[in-house]
Computed example of a mutant assay.
Amino acid sequence: MIISVIALACAGSAIAAIAARWMPRALVPALVLEIAFGIAIGPNGLDLMEPGPTMELLARIGFGMLMLIAGLEIDLDMLLARGRKAERTSPLTLALAMSLLTVAMAGAGAWLLLDPATPPLHLAIYAVILSTTSVGIVVPTIQERRLADGPYGQTVLSTALLADFFTMIAISVLAGIVVSGRAEGALGSLALVAVGGVAIWLLPKLLARIPVTRLDSRTSLPLIRLSLAVLFLVAWLAETLGSELVLAAFLAGLLLGRIIPRGSHRRETLEAIGYGFIVPFFFINVGLKFDIPALFASPTALLLVPGFVAVAFANKIIPSLLLIPAHGRRMAVAAGILLSARLSLIVAASDIATRIGVLDTATNAAMVLVAIISAALAPLLFNLLAEPSPTTLAKAEA
């Protein structure tokens, strides 16, 4: 049974990856196709596989690996250095302002769309879910357009990274409060952040005395083994403290990002293990659990989809207008559209909210549909709207 589950999931991830590369300019991320594959083979499709303990465990490990890789993407030194050295408004300052506006607009949008009797704590969770951004889509899109090294690209990347960072903390804290029914329920997540902060500050300094070459080997792979050990240790710590895996794995990624040098082939090895094998289990499991009958049986949930999509784009595009003085209206709107892409984190946050009873299955399905729509539309619209970078123009002219 376990072998058949792994075999089907691996086949599906391979098909999704090949199909995504065959599409013009890879417009649809492979992750969307993995969700579609899960729907196709699940109870609402061919019924070849059902959600179960085996797939749930593999999906949970895959999700942890996904969040660890997301943490690896964040360059804390770059963010802080940009904020100190820039002469005018820095990318980090703009990113903070845009992120705060995004949360405020997401909260206002949720308040307008939902039942007036919705508890404030539940509204806050909806606001967090609708504030997410997909770093996995934003980063490669910015890099493909050769914008990553300029102020515009740094601002967009900083905004996406901050959105992920604060969303992970917020959803973990709010989930703890909902589950416990008291504010003290947030203490586990706050304690995890405190422990993670100390480790991120202290461990890299202690390990700096050890040459990286001593931690590298083509056969024993100490850095890879260390990374996987850290992931599972922080997951165990999060469980002990009553926090969420999403936060623990992300903090582990931040820590490892300070230990494993940028440009190291070991980062590529971790991404290969994650995206090539274990992460697809998470997205295929999302497709397996995607409850189409519940969605279509709930007129309220169906009506929420266009509303959520509108809020998801508006709460990124409007704050991005702050970029107009520095980058012009067209590029500002393009940034907002790209930041509107949601995928892994909105699905994860929605899954957490469903597990703790804030969202029902129909609303969760609506959120997954919003993720698929935004992930498919945002990169396409950005590429149509964004002006080519000077480097790209120079290459084209040559």
Rank of each mutant, 00 (worst) to 15 (best):
I2H: 08
I6W: 11
L8I: 14
W22A: 06
R25H: 14
R25V: 09
R25N: 14
L33I: 06
F37K: 01
F37C: 03
P43L: 05
L48V: 09
I61H: 08
M67F: 02
A70K: 02
M78L: 08
M78T: 07
M78D: 10
R82M: 00
R82K: 00
L96N: 07
A104H: 04
L112G: 03
L114I: 01
L114Y: 01
I125K: 11
L130I: 03
S131I: 09
I137D: 08
Q143D: 10
A163H: 10
A163Q: 13
T167D: 01
M168V: 15
I171M: 04
S172W: 00
G185V: 04
G185Q: 03
V193H: 12
G196V: 00
G197I: 07
I200A: 09
L207K: 06
R209I: 15
P211R: 02
T213I: 02
T213M: 01
T219D: 15
R225T: 10
S227D: 08
A229M: 13
L237N: 14
S243E: 05
A249V: 11
L255F: 13
G263C: 03
S264T: 10
S264V: 12
R266D: 01
A272I: 10
F282H: 15
V286E: 11
K289D: 09
P293S: 05
A294W: 14
S298L: 08
P299D: 05
P319R: 10
L323P: 08
H327Y: 12
R329E: 10
V333W: 02
A335S: 09
A348H: 09
D351K: 02
A353E: 00
T354I: 01
R355W: 01
I356D: 01
A366V: 00
A366Q: 00
A375N: 04
L380K: 13
L380S: 12
L381V: 09
T391Y: 03
E397A: 15
